[in-house]
Computed example of a mutant assay.
Amino acid sequence: MSDGFSLSGVFPASLTMFDEAGRLDQPATHRHLASLVDAGAHGLVVAGTSGEFVAMAPDEKVRLVATAVAAADGRVPVVAGTGTASTAESVELTRAAAAEGAAAVLVILPYYMRPHREEVLAHIRAVGAASPVPVLLYNNPANSGTTELDAVDVGMLYREGVIHGVKSTFPTVHQVPEVIDETGPDFAVFYGGFMAPLSGLAEGAHGWISGVLNVALAEALALYDAVRAGDLAAARRWAAAIRQYRYLYTRRPLGQVGDLALYRTMLELRGEHGGHCRLPLLPLTPEQRARLERIMTENPALRGIAVSGAPPR
């Protein structure tokens, strides 16, 4: 465990900006990341799921980390996603990210080959042993398609000095307090979904990491502050505002659309740069874009609090 290690707060799982041809657009990515920091993000997560790490080559990930560190400019920590299906590649990326200035790394469960529990533990231990910076476990079994590590496993890895935090991405939030029970005050527990951030933070999570924070950062910061202040009424109002973003994905008013395409188009409709996803992820159709614009016009919560100045009541 690194002495003095501490991460907490609202960390956007940042979009990676690609151009129309699918090339990594470092200037646009720099601008987006800097804008998140300017808006008050407590830290940045890059090369995560929302950053489309699975569609990126190793050298692109290293360039992305360098871009993020430059955009943060020492104001907030950068957490780099360095986990892959390969232990050797994960170790190499972790060392490279640390060399570029990442404050910590986020290591996904090894995916696709469906390694069993002991293989997953061996992978995380190997990366942790080789990492020059603190390691956060990205416990996301649904996306990785492999064995989850439960709270007891996480506590064991913490006591071994292998990991220093976790992004807990499950449909439920009971894992958050269970992990807190198994670890210590110097272990960073981040709620990692977008279904129940108020519940996750109220259960004791030290922060929130999610892709929706690319477009709902101000609301998330207000939610985080309300929970820390013990103002449940305000926290509920901010959580209600954030749910409007979730409904665009879960209730499908636009039909079948990806969450990243939604975020990118929302940024564009607000006059910001949204960039492109890499294939096979598709952008919104012109019809879907027009429908989203109408929904945003009709729903003040989706235009951002800069318009309304206060959460809906």
Rank of each mutant, 00 (worst) to 15 (best):
H273W: 11
L260N: 08
T250E: 15
R236N: 06
L254F: 10
A240T: 09
T265D: 02
R236G: 08
C277Q: 08
A241M: 09
E293M: 04
R251V: 06
G255R: 05
A261G: 13
Q256A: 07
L284Y: 10
E268I: 09
M266T: 02
R228Q: 13
P280I: 13
A261K: 00
P280W: 13
L282Y: 12
Y247I: 00
T285S: 13
Y247G: 01
E219M: 07
L267Q: 01
R246T: 12
Q244M: 12
P280A: 12
M266E: 03
G274T: 05
E272K: 10
L281F: 12
G230S: 07
L292T: 03
A222M: 11
R243G: 08
V227D: 03
A240C: 05
D225H: 07
A226K: 00
L254I: 12
A229L: 06
V227W: 07
E268R: 14
G274E: 04
Y263T: 00
L269K: 06
R252I: 11
R291Y: 02
R228N: 11
R278L: 15
L267A: 07
Q244G: 05
L269H: 13
L223Y: 01
G258L: 12
R289C: 05
Y263N: 00
L254R: 05
R236W: 07
H273S: 11
R270G: 11
A233K: 00
R243Q: 13
W238K: 01
Y245F: 15
R252M: 15
P280M: 12
R289A: 08
L269F: 13
L284D: 01
L281R: 01
W238V: 03
I242Y: 13
G271P: 05
E272Y: 06
G258P: 02
A241L: 06
V257H: 01
R236Y: 04
Y249G: 01
W238D: 05
W238T: 00
R251H: 15
A290G: 06
E272R: 10
A239W: 07
A220F: 11
A290H: 10
R251E: 15
A235N: 02
D259E: 11
A235G: 14
R228W: 11
A226F: 03
A261I: 03
Q256Y: 09
H273K: 01
Y263A: 03
Y263P: 00
P253A: 02
L292A: 04
L269N: 02
L267S: 03
L248P: 13
R252S: 13
T250I: 10
L221N: 04
G258Q: 10
G274Y: 13
A235E: 05
L260Q: 10
T285F: 07
Y263W: 15
L232C: 02
A222F: 09
T250M: 12
G271M: 03
V257P: 04
M266F: 09
E287D: 13
R264M: 09
L279S: 11
T250F: 14
R243A: 14
E272A: 14
L232E: 13
L223R: 01
M266P: 02
A240M: 06
C277G: 02
I242V: 14
G258E: 14
R246Y: 15
Q256R: 09
R236P: 04
Q244S: 15
E219D: 14
R291N: 02
T265G: 01
R289D: 00
P253S: 04
G275V: 00
H273D: 12
R270Q: 06
A235D: 03
T265A: 14
L284P: 03
P283T: 07
M266A: 04
L221M: 11
A235H: 02
R237I: 08
R252L: 14
